[in-house]
């Protein structure tokens, strides 16, 4: 009989889950928008993932569940909760064991994580006080441009001359962007300025722990192609794109740790 292990990453913006089997293969994953209740989000996203796995019908059939993300404490059904820092490191390491630096850009914080040879966390820094450089910031900026997040992330690719955004604070940056738009500056150039400004902040954060090759970006903002381009331009080492959905890396890491810990039965907390 196959055993199944789930990682459930409940972030401020989205809830993600990854289910793996006892061979460590990913058998299912799902992602939904977060609700106000982390546990409701987790149950819903797990149900969706379970629904696509033959032979799995109920959450109770999962052998071990690890919760991660800011909402992890609320998941009463999880066997264990583990910080998203450890989970992103484990997830990135499982996909590419040569990764030594992870920049995780989530909905409401960003982190730079230094990994050891075995994928263990040896250092990290995080920005959880300032919205600049988080998913929330990009949401606000795309609103100012009156376009979807996806369209905004593509916009800067057409820039020929990025316009620097001088404001450090996301609130003032948004005002500055609106002001530039009203001055009829080229939207692509403004967008490129935004991406560059955020990339600089992220690299400054990462340099605090000492950036080592290989570097990858995880979290929802890893899908922002304009930001990834700006990051690549700002650093002289390769920014690796993982062969796995970067937004699901935390949940994948949680699933891997669930498999590791689930070998021995544990009581549900």
């Amino acid at each position: 009989m196959t055993s199944y292990y789930a990682g459930c990453d409940i972030g401020s913006t989205t809830g993600k889950t990854v289910i793996i089997n006892d061979a460590g293969e990913v058998v299912s994953s799902a992602m939904i928008d977060s609700t106000i209740d982390p546990e409701v989000t987790a149950i819903e996203v797990l149900s969706r993932a379970i629904g696509t796995v033959n032979g799995l019908e109920d959450m109770k059939e999962l052998d071990y569940i690890v919760g991660t993300g800011y909402g992890r404490i609320e998941l009463s059904f999880a066997h264990k909760n583990i910080s998203e820092i450890t989970c992103h490191a484990a997830g990135a390491n499982s996909v590419d064991p040569l990764i030594r630096t992870v920049i995780d850009i989530g909905g409401q914080d960003c982190k730079a994580i230094a990994l050891g040879d075995g994928g263990n966390v040896i250092d990290f820094v995080m920005n959880d006080k300032c919205a600049a450089g988080t998913g929330r910031f990009f949401e606000a900026v795309s609103r100012a441009f009156q376009m979807s997040l996806n369209d905004f992330s593509q916009l800067s690719l057409d820039s020929t001359k990025p316009i620097p955004i001088s404001s450090q604070c996301s609130v003032f940056a948004e005002s500055e962007i609106i002001s530039l738009i009203s001055q009829r500056k080229k939207p692509a150039d403004i967008a490129a300025g935004v991406q560059l400004s955020v990339a600089k902040r992220l690299l400054t954060l990462a340099r605090r722990i000492g950036v080592k090759e290989r570097l990858t970006v995880t979290g929802g903002c890893a899908k922002n192609v304009g930001l990834i381009k700006a990051l690549r331009e700002g650093i002289d080492i390769e920014v690796v794109e993982l062969p796995f959905d970067a937004q699901l890396i935390g949940a994948l890491g949680a699933a891997i740790l669930a498999r590791r810990d689930g070998v021995q039965p544990a009581r549900r907390t």
């Binding site: 910080s83 820092i85 450890t86 490191a89 966390v121 040896i122 250092d123 990290f124």
Partner: peptide
């Protein structure tokens, strides 16, 4: 707590 959980691996 973040350090103890993530770097020291304290459970």
């Amino acid at each position: 707590a973040d350090f103890m959980d993530n770097v020291m691996g304290h459970s």
